[in-house]
């Protein structure tokens, strides 16, 4: 369980994080989204104990990060931004260091170390110096450090940054596997990651929580929710008629690929009406699709408001 209550941090006159209350229970993977400078890293640093909270509280598995810092840190696995590690050490030496600091010695410690190495497929590079490794391997080495002690809570700051698509998929699978009995917070800029690995989303902007919910709930807030899109050459007349349907809000044509999107008024179901009309007009349609809603759209709207507010 990871909890924050009215967590805040002020730098000179700017609120890096303000009044942030989150609760992540075991089994939940929370995606922390937001533009650069929204306060994601500051939030994670406060929970991990690298920064003192300016106001409010943060708890990891019931341990207050200020009152019981060591207990809180023992319960947490943390991948800092940029996945730092000691470049002059080999992978094996670095992991042995992390294990020793965490008190993981003896048979059980050795087993935890071996399991983590196996899980992240680090065997081929164990003896190699970390600074000679590729960016993807370096990130996995630092991720290994966070998983060594099998923590009940995990905070991962951009775990897939710099990984190729195959490695990203592996990390997503890893996160899903670990989620069963752990509380996990993941920050990311890749919105595709949310569907792949997370079951909750929180979007921050200017240090404040703007939206929170399951990915499906957020997608429902998108104007693309229940929209219908298709590709059809020479369908200008049909589009005009679609726009006149009472349940249709707007019809947009993508200038690049010519894809037509029909937006519903107030999230109404319009799929059948659209299909019927296209059929009546004998429009040849390709790639007809009912849209679920787009996180990108919600993200842009929620964080775009912030920009407007800042300008005002």
């Amino acid at each position: 369980m990871i909890e924050t209550e009215h967590l805040g941090k002020r730098y000179s006159r700017i609120d890096a994080v303000a009044d942030l209350s989150l609760k992540v229970a075991p089994g939940q993977v929370l995606a922390l989204l937001g533009p650069n400078g929204a306060g994601k890293t500051t939030t994670m640093r406060m929970i991990a104990g690298f920064l003192m909270p300016g106001s409010g509280r943060a708890r990891v598995c019931g341990h207050d990060v200020v009152a019981e810092p060591l207990a809180a840190r023992r319960a947490l696995g943390y991948l800092p931004e940029g996945a730092p590690s000691y470049g002059e050490l080999s992978v094996a030496e670095f992991l042995a260091f992390a294990a020793r600091v965490r008190g993981l010695t003896g048979v059980s410690g050795r087993r935890g170390l071996d399991e983590t190495i196996e899980r992240l497929q680090l065997q081929p590079v164990l003896a190699q110096g970390i600074e000679t490794l590729s960016k993807g391997y370096r990130r996995r080495v630092c991720l290994a450090q966070a998983l060594l002690h099998d923590p009940p809570a995990l905070i991962l700051d951009e775990p897939t940054d710099g990984l190729d698509p195959n490695q990203q998929r592996e990390v997503h699978a890893l996160i899903r596997n670990m989620a069963r009995d752990r509380a996990i917070i993941v920050s990311t800029h890749a919105l595709g990651e949310v569907r792949a690995a997370c079951n909750r989303v929180a979007i921050l902007a200017q240090g404040r929580l703007r939206v929170e919910g399951t990915p499906a709930e957020l997608e429902r807030q998108s104007r693309f929710h229940h929209a219908v899109s298709f590709r059809a050459p020479a369908s200008a007349l049909a589009c005009e008629m679609l726009g006149r349907l009472p349940e249709v809000d707007a019809v947009e044509v993508d200038p690049v690929d010519g894809r037509v999107t029909v937006f519903p008024r107030d999230g109404q179901e319009i799929f059948h009406a659209v299909v019927k009309l296209l059929d009546e007009q004998r429009v040849r349609v390709d790639e007809l699709q009912l849209e679920r809603g787009r996180l990108e759209d919600v993200f842009r709207r929620v964080t775009g408001d912030a920009d407007v507010a800042r300008a005002a």
């Binding site: 800092p80 940029g82 730092p84 000691y86 470049g87 992390a98 965490r102």
Partner: peptide, 11 residues
């Protein structure tokens, strides 16, 4: 190198 963050978040 940022390892300070790693070190100071270890117990």
């Amino acid at each position: 190198s940022g390892t300070l963050e790693l070190l100071m978040t270890l117990p």
